[in-house]
């Protein structure tokens, strides 16, 4: 397989001009086909390996999911699902039950996830007030998670989460994101919704899954796209 200068440029994340100059100078092995320089993929790999240059593989097949980060909380909540009647009297039990019921990608170890959630909880409570908590792991198991997930869990009874305002928590949004950036984007979107008193009251009524998701979808359309969706 032969690549042209632009494809090589994308692979090693340098401007096309530089690649062309390297080829001209003879720093990068290339063959000339009809007056245009082409680089054999094998040659490129060998060359990159020799010079410790990392190839940007994922950049090549554009359109694949990891590149375009999906920061719609509607989609994330849709993926994560909504669960009712989570049992437990304290944070630990609640989280345990939550992890038990939610559906997760197969390769994600539930036990490990629970540990990560508890660890994060130890650092500071994820209760953000108004009876809402957003439990999430501090570091995200990157490779295991292609997309962000939000699992909405309504608790059987209100539980004290050590929240900022001291109010006991009735609903927890368990949030798993593939990267910090996605996490922050999601968080800012979610908190935008939660700032809305009406929405919180709506949550207090423990709405049906379809109603909840529809409501979120509507609210999200009002949000401006974040920077990462643009680029």
């Amino acid at each position: 397989m032969k690549l042209n200068a632009r494809e090589v440029a994308r692979l090693i994340d340098m401007p096309e001009e530089t690649i062309q100059r390297w080829i001209r100078k003879g720093s990068l092995p290339a063959v000339e086909i009809n007056g245009k320089y082409m680089v054999r993929e094998d040659d490129l790999r060998k060359w990159a390996d020799k010079h410790n240059i990392v190839l940007n593989e994922e950049q090549r097949d554009t359109g694949s999911e990891p590149k375009r980060k999906d920061v719609s909380i509607y989609k994330a909540m849709h993926r994560g699902g909504v669960f009712y009647g989570i049992k437990g009297d304290n944070v630990k039990d609640v989280l345990e039950d939550m992890v038990r019921v939610v559906t997760l990608p197969e390769n994600l170890d539930k036990k490990m996830l629970l540990e990560l959630l508890l660890e994060r909880e130890k650092l500071a409570s994820t209760g953000i007030g108004e009876g809402i908590a957003i439990p999430h792991p501090r570091t995200t198991p990157k490779d295991l998670l292609p997309w962000p997930i939000i699992s909405t869990c309504f608790l059987e009874k209100e539980v004290d989460f050590n929240a900022i305002d001291g109010k006991p928590v009735f609903v927890a949004f368990m949030m798993l994101s593939p990267s910090i950036k996605t996490h922050l984007d999601m968080l800012s979107r979610l908190s935008f919704c939660l700032r809305d008193k009406e929405f919180v009251n709506f949550l207090r009524c423990i709405p049906r899954e379809e109603d909840l998701l529809e409501k979120v979808r509507l609210m999200e359309t009002r949000l401006k796209p974040t920077s990462s969706t643009q680029s």
Partner: peptide, 13 residues
């Protein structure tokens, strides 16, 4: 960044 890459590729290996 480019300076370093330039040095790297100018190395003969």
């Amino acid at each position: 960044d480019h300076y370093r890459k330039e040095l790297i590729v100018q190395e003969e290996k």
